[in-house]
Design a protein around this nucleic acid. Structure first.
Lengths: 211, 211
DNA sequence: CATGCTTGGATAGTTTCACTGTCCAATGGA
DNA sequence: TCCATTGGACAGTGAAACTATCCAAGCATG
């Protein structure tokens, strides 16, 4: 298939596809002549994944490239690739001031992880951007004066643990290792808006019930 | 307190505070002379909330203004304000093409809501951006070939319902109506990154357990 | 009272991100 | 043969969120 057809079938403009090719989000097509390249079904599939990550998941283009690269890196083993793919993901900036709220947040999170037995023995995984993001978010809540210690976080963490089981089950349903990696990325990112939307809708529902 | 002190105490540059004042995210200070204005503790509190919404919650400036405006609108009753504040929130673009995936997604979501008994009698709440976002997200999953019907969504929705109960409990702990509105906004938005971070950490944990 | 730093307001500039548009030479189908 | 199409290079665009510069009117200090 030519660029034009790839564009047609994916609903992404040729200009944007060229941009993604330049940015390394899409592997280049098989060159069939000096001015023509051939694309296959995997290009289409990859393009759809990239689009979904960026448009629905809100992943920045640069981060999407990292994720794709990690997912394809043959030098890593399955578990590492699975983790690397998601570890390369969102990540906020790094204010990380030695603000007292950050210190409080750090302690709350450490206590929570201790209580859950997560990362036990290994210590908190500071490479994981999710961990930093959690601390920053808790710090923001603390700064506003909302209670946000282990007590409040525990129910959220327990629900997160349940979600993880469901999510990993879905990943394991994929037959091939490559399919599992892709599913891990796609399901991690694309179920986030699903979950948040459902939570907001549940708020509306629960609020209507109470008032 | 003067602008400089407000900046000092909040950690936000005076230039940015001026920008927020221009954008209507912050009520102007009490003019004490032609070139001086006085700010109080509420300004500081509001500024911290705005900053958290924008930096941690990732809410765009324009949306934050809407939220603030809705939360302050005295013409609405408590429940409406509570809902309006969160309804003004994120919202993706509106591709809403008559793509077959969108149609499938729409049906899955409708079936889910039916099954949960949400919005019963009232029909799906199309004013709620969360509803549209849910459909778009499910459509993206469908397009990639991942199963995403009522079967898969139900556990997520049930967890969301549990979260909503916890969240509303926290809101109701606030003594004043104003405090409740603010808490609704802050907790809705700021627990989102908390939840997503915990989910990602739980993925890592569960993945480590399995492999 | 002179003077010089500070303040708040207005306005223009900067940076980043994600595209988008234009040009061009080389095809390749009619 | 002829001319629309293709892929690549590169410059331009528009939105978003700040950031920097100016300026005149205070206020504080000697």
């Amino acid at each position: 298939m030519r660029l034009a057809e790839l564009s047609e079938r994916s609903g992404v403009s040729t200009a944007t596809i060229k941009y993604y090719l330049r940015e390394g989000l899409l592997q280049p097509g098989r060159r069939v002549s000096a001015t023509q390249a051939e694309y296959g079904e995997d290009h289409l599939r990859r393009l759809r994944l990239v689009r979904a990550l960026i448009q629905i998941g809100g992943v920045p283009v640069a981060a999407a490239r990292e994720v794709i690269a990690a997912a394809e890196d043959e030098s890593l083993d399955h578990h590492l690739r699975l983790g690397a793919a998601t570890r390369a993901l969102p990540c906020a900036e790094r204010p990380a001031e030695d603000d007292p709220a950050v210190e409080t947040a750090r302690r709350s999170v450490a206590a929570l992880l201790e209580r859950l037995g997560w990362s036990s023995g290994r210590g908190p995984d500071l490479r994981n951007p999710a961990h930093r993001r959690l601390i920053d978010s808790v710090a923001a809540l603390v700064r506003l004066g909302y209670p946000c210690d282990t007590e409040q976080l525990l129910p959220y963490a327990q629900l997160a643990a349940q979600l993880a089981v469901t999510d990993l089950d879905m990943v394991e349903e994929q037959p091939t290792p490559t399919g599992q990696i892709e599913a891990a990325v796609a399901l991690t990112v694309l179920y986030e808006p699903v979950l948040l939307s459902l939570r907001r809708m549940a708020h509306a529902e629960e609020s209507a019930r109470r008032f």
